[in-house]
Computed example of a mutant assay.
Amino acid sequence: MATLILVRHGRSTANTAGLLAGWTPGVALDERGAGQAAALPGRLVGVPLVAAVTSPLQRCRETLAPLMAARPELELHTDERIGECHYGDWSGRKLSELADEPLMKIVQQHPSAAAFPGGESMRAMQARAVESVREWNTRIEQEHGGDAIFLMCSHGDIIKSLVADALGMHLDLFQRIHVDPCSVTAIRYTPTRPFVFRLGDTGDFGSLVPGEKAPTPDKAAEDAGNAVVGGGAGAA
């Protein structure tokens, strides 16, 4: 069966501002995110990709731009089903402010029961993303064979929910998964079960080294035992 490479978009201006972007238009990569995107073609050298699928949001399209320039033969598709969670009234708000919302406790501890005001539920988010992956797997295998490898560029919560599905984890456990900006996750789907070969791989282990670090919104959330909704900005 096909192998899927999931790439989270590079660090965005919303990530560094501590905002929950959602589908807010005009959210671009910041300088570091652009550098992460520029490095992506080199990280995937030798991987025989047959297709790329992207979320329609700007930060994902910008992340794939260097890869598409390096591989002009690669076909690019857009699929709204792997677009960011529809956070509704929460979109564009500061994560530090949202931390005090009663719903945040549900998002952290019981996400399968969480539905964003004016937006969608986390169950619906996962369902549409899984449906997209399953359909693309079938299409890619039919067109390119069982050893084909394809790529999807998406968002933190989407990728975490797909990994949870692949691992057979309940959605209520998906906040235990972490994927940094421009990280690579690889899942191979077989007739009986998926296999997760890479998870949130950036090739950079600097964030694991103890020491004095500047405080970040991500670190503050994680120190409190919470996941960063939307995925966070990664290492400082």
Rank of each mutant, 00 (worst) to 15 (best):
T3F: 05
L4G: 06
T13I: 15
N15E: 14
P25H: 00
G26M: 06
A28Q: 08
A28S: 12
L29T: 00
L29G: 02
D30A: 03
E31Q: 15
G33S: 02
A38Q: 13
G42H: 15
R43D: 03
V45G: 00
L49E: 08
V50M: 08
A51G: 07
P56V: 07
C60R: 11
P66N: 04
P72A: 03
L74Y: 08
L76H: 08
T78K: 15
E80Q: 00
G83N: 08
Y87I: 10
Y87E: 13
L95N: 07
E97G: 00
D100Q: 02
L103H: 06
A113T: 06
A115I: 00
G118W: 14
G118M: 12
E120L: 04
M122N: 09
M122W: 09
R123Y: 05
A124W: 03
Q126K: 02
R128A: 02
S132P: 13
S132C: 15
E135H: 15
R139D: 11
E141S: 14
Q142H: 07
H144G: 00
G145R: 08
G145Y: 05
F150W: 13
C153E: 09
D157H: 01
K160F: 03
L162V: 11
D165S: 10
L167Y: 05
F174W: 15
H178A: 02
V179Y: 02
D180L: 07
C182M: 01
V184A: 07
T185S: 10
I187P: 01
T190C: 01
R193K: 11
R193E: 14
P194E: 11
F195R: 13
F195P: 00
R198T: 04
L199Q: 04
G200V: 12
D201Q: 08
G206K: 03
S207T: 13
S207M: 15
L208W: 15
A214P: 14
A214R: 12
T216M: 09
A220G: 13
A221T: 09
G225Q: 10
V229T: 12
G231H: 02
